[in-house]
């Protein structure tokens, strides 16, 4: 890791991105003290991390290795264990179970849970102490699309309703772009971008969109003036590249003015491709 400074604004959902092996997990492990630090170089809230561990964990919820659960215990007992360690009233347990929608399954053993349920239980364990900051390492890794959506909804709700600051690491931008307010991108141990989602898309140089409209063939030549890569897909769809996202409203306006009947405009792989580009550039 090379002199990395990450700024996570309070109340944000911060996406910590990078390809596999970029140093995401190392960052997480160092932040949580799982990898013991060699010198007092890590600072959290401007104070050396070493001095704050392990008490800082009453303010920080974390989910580092997913999912760390005791499979022989029920969901309830797993939470009870954390409650005991955190010295939290056991009444909180039913609250978090409800929050992650596991109220009905609380008595069942964790080994009978589906992967998504385990993940939700793990998040519930991280949430038990009502943390100000939630550190999540690849929380949707390995989940089916439904599971991903559930977790995503849950995190957004937490952020909006409880004001929890969330720090999520992922190697797939698409997984998190829909909920993050801020993004940091790491590659080869260096932070190569940090900013809001808007700033990130502003940095992006290519935007590929797909337009569904009637008599697509007729528009290919017209669109050729605005973009160099217009592709015919079928009678109703064409795709084209724009310089950036900001060009979309102008293009649509122009097409409508020229009498086009537009049914749908969809951005294809936008952020994901920019993200890959940024990484490749470095």
């Amino acid at each position: 890791m090379d002199n990395i400074s990450i700024h996570v604004p309070k109340g944000s959902i911060y996406g910590y991105l990078g390809p596999n092996g970029a140093g995401k997990s190392t960052t997480m492990n160092l932040l949580t003290g799982i990898i013991p630090e060699q010198s007092n170089a890590i600072k959290l809230f401007d104070k050396p991390l070493q001095e704050q561990l392990p008490h800082a964990f009453s303010k920080i919820g974390s989910l580092v290795e997913s999912p760390a659960l005791y499979l022989h215990l029920s969901g309830f007992d797993n939470l009870k264990y954390i409650a005991r360690l955190q010295q939290i009233d056991e009444g909180r347990i039913s609250e978090v179970l409800e929050l992650v929608d596991l109220t009905k399954d609380g008595k069942r053993k964790a080994k009978q849970y589906s992967f998504g349920m385990k993940q939700r239980l793990a998040i519930a364990m991280a949430l038990l102490s009502e943390p100000e900051l939630l550190l999540l390492d690849e929380p949707v890794n390995g989940l089916d699309p439904n599971g991903i959506i559930e977790i995503r909804k849950l995190l957004i709700r937490l952020n909006q309703e409880k004001g929890v600051t969330i720090f999520i690491s992922s190697h797939l931008l698409a997984e998190i772009e829909k909920m993050c307010t801020h993004v940091g991108i790491i590659d080869h141990g260096k932070l190569i971008f940090e900013g809001t989602m808007m700033e990130l898309s502003g940095k992006a140089t290519i935007c590929k969109i797909q337009i569904t409209l009637s008599s697509a063939k007729d528009w290919i030549d017209i669109l050729g003036n605005d973009s160099d890569q217009v592709t015919y897909i079928n009678d109703n769809q064409i795709s084209l590249h724009l310089d950036n996202r900001d060009s979309i409203p102008g293009l649509i306006k122009k097409l409508i003015e020229q009498g086009a009947e537009i049914y749908e405009v969809k951005i294809l792989d936008g952020l994901e491709e920019w993200f890959m580009n940024i990484i490749e550039e470095n």
């Binding site: 949580t32 799982i34 392990p54 005791y70 499979l71 954390i82």
Partner: peptide, 19 residues
């Protein structure tokens, strides 16, 4: 083994308890 099998060591170490 209780903790080796279930990732419990990491879980415990991210709780407010001394090693």
């Amino acid at each position: 083994q209780l903790d080796h099998k279930n990732g419990g060591w990491k879980l415990m170490e991210t709780q407010p308890v001394q090693k």
